[in-house]
């Protein structure tokens, strides 16, 4: 019964009139996997997800979600899916508990309401009306509502867009709790940090296509990319005196030099630098060793696509 793949997509296309929003997507998502779909606005993320959720018909390609075609959603299929939408008001006049009880009534085997409230950290707000919750609390209720039917697969469409950092952390905690339950999760976002924090795998969308796919640490050749070492050289030290690898990376601006180099061998290079500085008792201001962030990769990938 248990299909190893929760989602299988091949050759998916979707046009709105003359505009092709999705231009040939192939993707598989394993059961129990957390996949983040990254991409700028208009990349086709939401369109793709809404096709998977059974909201939109597709123009071409084949799609299987939990073994069924989402173009014909049945009640039984809907029972196995939880959805957190992007812009979607709660019923402000119902309390948190009432909202959950209302939605629980649509499912044959819903989760326990108190347990779901606890899971999303809403215990203290369970008797508050949804209209009186903060942004972060509302989002947690959105997540709780998506969980109440005890689905196998959960879609989260930009779950933290427009949130302040605290609310974002709150939402992440709620999403982490879903992972703990072993759910398959599809998450769209344009926050790299969010994908890095939550996802097992990332698919980068640009202009209706997937331009890269992989684990957050490896995507786009991230694991093979050089590390950047940078620092500011005090005025008393001369850039020409630096170890050879660093000389080329120095940009003098009069009062001192800003130095930045890329290396595949960060430990050795860094050792060379610090030994040199220790010998001469030179303080290296703003010394930083930085691996390319997911954001660097993302910008590079989506840029390349834009230029081509």
């Amino acid at each position: 019964m248990s299909d190893p793949h929760a989602i299988e997509i091949s050759g998916l296309r979707k046009s709105y009139g003359d505009v092709e929003a999705v231009r040939g997507i192939d993707l598989r998502v394993k059961s129990g996997e957390v996949l983040a779909i990254l991409g700028p606005n208009g990349a086709g993320k939401t369109t793709t997800v809404e096709i998977l959720e059974g909201y939109r018909p597709r123009s071409a390609g084949s799609v299987s979600v939990l073994g069924a075609d989402p173009a014909n959603p049945t009640r039984a299929w809907r029972e196995r899916i939880g959805i957190v939408l992007q812009d979607c008001e709660l019923l402000g006049q119902l309390t948190v508990r009432e909202s959950l009880a209302m939605y629980a009534g649509y499912y044959r085997a819903p989760r326990d309401i108190d347990e779901t409230i606890a899971l999303t950290g809403l215990q203290e707000k369970s008797e508050s009306r949804a209209g009186h919750l903060s942004g972060g609390q509302r989002r947690r209720l959105d997540v709780a509502l998506a969980l109440i039917g005890d689905p196998e697969l959960i879609f989260l469409d930009e779950p933290t867009t427009g949130f302040d950092p605290e609310a974002r952390r709150e939402a992440w905690t709620a999403i982490d709790s879903m992972r703990t339950l072993g759910k398959t999760i599809i998450l769209t976002t344009h926050y790299m940090e969010e994908a890095q924090h939550l996802a097992d795998r990332v698919a980068v969308f640009a202009r209706g296509r997937i331009v890269a796919e992989g684990a957050p640490d490896e995507i786009g050749g991230r694991a093979e990319m050089p590390t950047t070492i940078s620092f500011t050289l005090p005025p008393k030290a001369a850039a020409s005196d630096l170890p050879p690898v660093f000389r080329a990376g120095a940009q003098s601006d009069g009062s001192g030099a800003f130095v930045s180099v890329e290396t595949h061998n960060s430990v050795e290079t860094l050792n060379e630098l610090t030994s040199w500085a220790l010998e001469r008792a030179i303080e290296l201001e703003d010394l930083s060793v930085r691996r390319p962030s997911l954001e660097d990769i993302y910008l590079r990938l989506t840029d390349e696509e834009g230029a081509s």
Partner: peptide, 10 residues
């Protein structure tokens, strides 16, 4: 979006 959310339930 209240109806859209309902539409996504059974």
């Amino acid at each position: 979006g209240v109806l859209k959310r309902l539409r996504g339930t059974p």
